[in-house]
Amino acid sequence: MNKNVQVHAALFLVALIYGSNYSIAKEVMPAYVGPYGLIILRVVSAAIFFGVFSRLVIKEKIRGWADNLRSVACGITGIAFNQLCFFGGLNLTAPINAALLMVISPVVVLLFSALLLKERVGWKKITGIVVACLGALLLISSSHTASGTGNWLGDVLIILNATSFGLYLVLVKPLMAKYKAVTVVSRIFAVGAVIVVPFGLNQLLAPDYSAFPLTIWLAIAFMIIGVTIITYLLNTWALKYANPTLVAIYIYLQPVLAILIAVGFGKDSFTLQKALYALLIFAGVYMVSMTKQQVAKRA
């Protein structure tokens, strides 16, 4: 399979999983588990999985002070601060608000890529981001209801999450050029796990887990395996071949996929208006992916 197709397929799957997570996470928190307790379940489980897999299969270590310090920074921005802000914000605001505010992440990536990686920002890339952002804003606004106004603190936390994730995508790129994806992900989750435990330990110990229905356990399993392990692996792998802006631009697909999922369960309707807005998003993704820096050719 063509490498371009593989990269876009991986990023599409990530967008699909993340698009589902906005609604699924709200089913679990705060009724069953507090947001920070849920973060511990996700991050510590992933840290154990990646740690064991890395030691038994990959057997590769991050070398040198510069790379080790960068991996710690990635653990802070990509796991700890990112997750604390996202789930704390999603717990306070409506899913539609969170999806709306997350569209700033590619803009952050573009700025940090220009500043830290000296990546040239061409007019096609800027135009693609603007077009995709416009489509996402119109789509989300058309689905927004009066009951989804959200909480201002939650909205601020989602903005901080988007900024942190954008910075993470830029910081982790050089590490992906030198190490295997599992090696990098294993380290950043280990760093993140150490940081998040003190924040959510009380919320982790509070619930009566024996009273959880099967649907809630399945939702938790989805967030640990799908939203945490699979998405970080696919995103990190994609960064080997694509620039951070292309990875970030797929955030714009999340509201499209979220609406399609809602339609499938009879919770929303898909109109011609929404179809046109979705086409804007896909057009923006296409414009960004067609820039010269789209996918690096590797042997």
Score class of each variant (00 low, 15 high):
residue 152 W to R: 04
residue 258 A to M: 10
residue 147 S to G: 14
residue 203 Q to L: 03
residue 142 S to Q: 06
residue 213 P to I: 13
residue 71 S to Q: 09
residue 148 G to M: 15
residue 81 F to N: 00
residue 159 I to P: 03
residue 56 L to Q: 08
residue 145 T to H: 11
residue 262 A to Y: 09
residue 142 S to N: 09
residue 214 L to R: 12
residue 276 L to M: 15
residue 67 D to K: 05
residue 187 R to S: 11
residue 210 S to D: 08
residue 230 I to A: 09
residue 207 P to W: 14
residue 99 A to K: 07
residue 109 V to W: 01
residue 157 L to W: 04
residue 253 L to S: 14
residue 279 L to E: 01
residue 70 R to D: 01
residue 190 A to F: 13
residue 95 P to I: 13
residue 276 L to A: 15
residue 12 F to E: 00
residue 176 M to C: 14
residue 132 A to V: 04
residue 172 V to L: 01
residue 266 G to A: 07
residue 80 A to W: 03
residue 286 Y to D: 10
residue 279 L to D: 02
residue 183 T to W: 02
residue 60 E to W: 12
residue 294 Q to L: 05
residue 232 Y to A: 03
residue 219 A to S: 15
residue 213 P to M: 13
residue 176 M to R: 13
residue 116 L to F: 13
residue 182 V to T: 14
residue 13 L to N: 08
residue 138 L to R: 06
residue 173 K to Y: 06
residue 117 L to Q: 10
residue 141 S to Y: 14
residue 17 I to G: 00
residue 33 V to C: 06
residue 163 T to S: 14
residue 169 L to R: 00
residue 284 G to P: 01
residue 165 F to R: 06
residue 56 L to K: 11
residue 177 A to M: 15
residue 155 D to C: 10
residue 135 G to C: 10
residue 197 V to F: 02
residue 249 I to T: 11
residue 200 G to I: 09
residue 94 A to L: 07
residue 7 V to T: 12
residue 53 F to T: 08
residue 239 L to N: 04
residue 14 V to G: 08
residue 265 F to C: 09
residue 235 N to T: 02
residue 105 S to R: 10
residue 209 Y to M: 06
residue 65 W to L: 07
residue 79 I to V: 15
residue 229 I to S: 07
residue 142 S to K: 11
residue 289 S to F: 09
residue 135 G to A: 09
residue 263 V to A: 12
residue 202 N to W: 09
residue 277 Y to M: 12
residue 126 I to S: 13
residue 145 T to M: 03
residue 45 S to H: 10
residue 98 A to R: 03
residue 8 H to E: 14
residue 91 N to L: 05
residue 31 A to H: 13
residue 240 K to C: 00
residue 117 L to V: 02
residue 74 C to N: 02
residue 34 G to C: 02
residue 26 K to W: 08
residue 246 L to H: 08
residue 240 K to L: 00
residue 225 I to E: 02
residue 105 S to Q: 15
residue 72 V to S: 05
residue 281 I to D: 10
residue 249 I to S: 08
residue 24 I to E: 00
residue 155 D to P: 10
residue 148 G to L: 05
residue 195 I to A: 08
residue 105 S to D: 03
residue 209 Y to Q: 08
residue 189 F to Q: 01
residue 39 I to S: 12
residue 272 L to E: 04
residue 42 R to N: 04
residue 254 Q to L: 07
residue 79 I to C: 08
residue 52 V to R: 03
residue 253 L to P: 04
residue 57 V to I: 14
residue 139 L to N: 06
residue 235 N to R: 00
residue 149 T to F: 15
residue 118 K to I: 07
residue 218 L to G: 11
residue 97 N to L: 00
residue 17 I to S: 01
residue 121 V to K: 02
residue 105 S to V: 09
residue 106 P to N: 07
residue 32 Y to M: 04
residue 80 A to Y: 02
residue 254 Q to Y: 07
residue 276 L to T: 15
residue 87 F to Y: 13
residue 288 V to S: 07
